[in-house]
């Protein structure tokens, strides 16, 4: 009886643990993509700023 219950808890842990691992994997991937998106947006903003300052300098010349 107790052996069976231990076995059952192991199966339960496997199912719910597996689901939790998958959820954590989704959250991790989401964070990675969001970070890449933020970095890219910052990079684009700085490039745009450089372009604008360069065009102002050219106009001044």
């Amino acid at each position: 009886m107790s052996h069976q219950l231990g076995y059952l808890w192991a199966v339960t842990l496997l199912v719910w643990g597996g689901t939790c691992l998958y959820v954590m994997s989704l959250w991790r991937r989401q964070r990675q993509v969001e970070r890449a998106l933020r970095e890219w947006q910052l990079e684009q903003a700085s490039v745009q700023k450089c372009d604008e300052s360069a065009s102002f300098t050219a106009a001044d010349d």
């Binding site: 689901t19 989704l26 890219w40």
Partner: peptide, 24 residues
């Protein structure tokens, strides 16, 4: 219910990934 939650999270991930790819 867990499945609906997982589907929402996975579709959101795919949407964010595609937004990044499109902007790039």
């Amino acid at each position: 219910l867990v499945y609906v939650l997982l589907l929402y999270l996975r579709v959101r991930l795919e949407w964010t990934r595609r937004t990044l790819a499109r902007m790039r």
